[in-house]
Amino acid sequence: MSTPGEDVPAGPGSATTPDGPPTRTAGGSSVPVIELRGVTKAYGDTPVLRGVDLAVHEHRAVVLIGASGSGKSTLLRCADLLEEIDDGDVLVDGEVITEPGVRPLATRRRLGMVFQAFNLFPHLTVLENVTLSPVRVHGVTKAEARDRGRELLARFGLAGREDEYPDRLSGGQQQRVAIVRAIATRPRALLLDEITSALDPLLVGEVLEVVRELKREGMTMVITTHEMQFAREVADEVCFLHEGRIVERGPASAVLGAPQQDETRRFLARLLDARQG
């Protein structure tokens, strides 16, 4: 993890931005990679999202904060079509993907997701976890996928772990594998769902370092987290979710430094208390 800086020039565009270098999108930069318009979602009679609007532009990182149950994870799952939304629209690259006729498969192939509990496949080795989707879904040859998988694993400090099974690795290593697995498909954007919440505090740093690295390379990301310091570092925009609505949004310095809404202030104070207590 101490050497990512040196690796950046080696293959910055090819690694994470599949459709070419960042400059290409100069004309199309007005179209967000991911956009939510008035999205609502309820589980039974319990509303989870009550009309969420969000736009994530290319190379930008949006951090969602909020208490448990505020709808952060549901929002990410809806964006990846793992949950069906009740109303509103989700767009990827300007295309509405929540039309009833649109197949969810194609969308999921364009986005990558990393989960709180890693969700690595325990019956597959580290490298097989990473190459499964490129080979089975994206039609990459096995040899090519393995080469690229090894290269990505090495870049994130996992060289030599390729043939181990996930349960042999530490939580931090497992989560780094999960991130590599998600970017191995060259997604348009990455959805990170509380990826450090299940980790030993000592292992959080190594995982966040990977995200910082991805941010430097220009990966478009939507991140939910309780790590406020980290949010300050990587967020181009912070959104505070409260009871299924985004009640405050803006640059990290504003939302976290000088919150305007009572709910935001209360949440941040409670979080601070919890850290100190």
Binding site: R77, D80, L82, P104, L105, R108, R109, L111, G112, M113, F115, N119, L120, F121, L132, S133, R136, V137, H138, R181, A182, T185
Partner: peptide, 9 residues
């Protein structure tokens, strides 16, 4: 979920 998120059918 993880498998579907990776684009597998």
């Amino acid at each position: 979920s993880a498998s579907l998120a990776l684009g597998l059918s």
